[in-house]
Design a binder for these strands. Sequence first.
DNA 1: GACTTTATAGAACAAATTTTCTATAATTAA
DNA 2: TTAATTATAGAAAATTTGTTCTATAAAGTC
Lengths: 215, 215
Amino acid sequence: MKGKKPNSGERELYHFIHDYHQQYGYTPSYQEMVDHTSSKTKSHIAHQLKKLEHAGWIEKTPNLPRAIRLNHAVQQSPSQGLIPLLGVIQAGAPIPLPGSDFAMFLPEDSIDIGSMLPVQKRRKDLFALRVLGDSMVDSNIQEDDIVILEKAQQANNGEMVAAWMLENEETTLKHFYKEKNRIRLQPANHKYKPIYCLPNQVQIQGRVVMVVRSC
Amino acid sequence: MKGKKPNSGERELYHFIHDYHQQYGYTPSYQEMVDHTSSKTKSHIAHQLKKLEHAGWIEKTPNLPRAIRLNHAVQQSPSQGLIPLLGVIQAGAPIPLPGSDFAMFLPEDSIDIGSMLPVQKRRKDLFALRVLGDSMVDSNIQEDDIVILEKAQQANNGEMVAAWMLENEETTLKHFYKEKNRIRLQPANHKYKPIYCLPNQVQIQGRVVMVVRSC
DNA sequence: GACTTTATAGAACAAATTTTCTATAATTAA
DNA sequence: TTAATTATAGAAAATTTGTTCTATAAAGTC
């Protein structure tokens, strides 16, 4: 459920913060957000802010008044390097792949990293996901990292992939290993056990080509 | 009193607010200004802020926390996002910082990542280093990762910095901790021990703002 | 030197802001 | 349906923050 695209309320809140900051040079207080959005309580604002932060739109320093940062990368110029940030990847969360009906509704949804990729990899079929949880720590990928994947239907052994498992109906980030008659999806955290499934029960959605961490 | 040029203390304060805002996206509290300037009381800060406002350098909304507006447009340089990749970082290897004589570097040595950084962090004074060795594995940074740093003279506790140690005459990537009378430089690998030194024997060269890994 | 003005300190106070807790409606899943 | 999860509300508590007041030091003026 987490990592969903912001709903209309969250979008309204984000826009208000953005406009307010544009106008005053600092961000609004919770009370002001209540007064100018459809939310009617500060606790609700807090709730929505947490979701916005989780989705990577804002950063907020706890306990500090008006300490919100907008994480938008203002893309005024049309850049080919835009990669849609689809959401978070976590067990249980199916990822809507771009291309079909996915539309970026705000420029903040995208990150411009394409231009730093090797030329061979500069393709259109790249997308990004924010990592949730600790299932990849052994591969030095931590929570809130952003993984950039290229769309792929298959993978080589050892590669890190986003895989859709038909049975569980979920997408996860795992290392891919094709064994004799089955596929082994190996978490990069010794705490978690590998998942075995039949080849026809796994759909590779993408292969990780880059990891980015904002500190 | 009106229009007087700021004295050294006021200039120091203004610069601190400016830098802080550049770094965090919001302005500091009075207490933080006390902590990071030569003023020792909040009332003194208030006094200096009034003068700065009279002189037209800032605007301040009364009674509101962190509601300061810098009246001098921050020069948002039309950066192409190019960040010089200075080399590798490893114990024993001093890093030549860009800026002065390091104006020219081959384009292959640069990576274009600036455009994906949050706006607040888009600055000229960014540089990149390739990580050598395993001294940062506990922070999920592995060999060959590229760390992007912003030039900085100081750091907060826990931040990852590139630090130049006068005594050893070397630069390393460590976590920064200011203790009572000394600085602790903590490797993010339990195999290595922390380094302790006096504040005047450490020079912060940059603060890590991003990590990038090509897979 | 004596006087005035300005700069700095310190602490108490008042105000604004965020967080937390509990409770209820709305939505979704089973 | 029922149960579970999420969204929203409300108010109080905890925290951070800005202001005010008084006092002392420094600097400039005559």
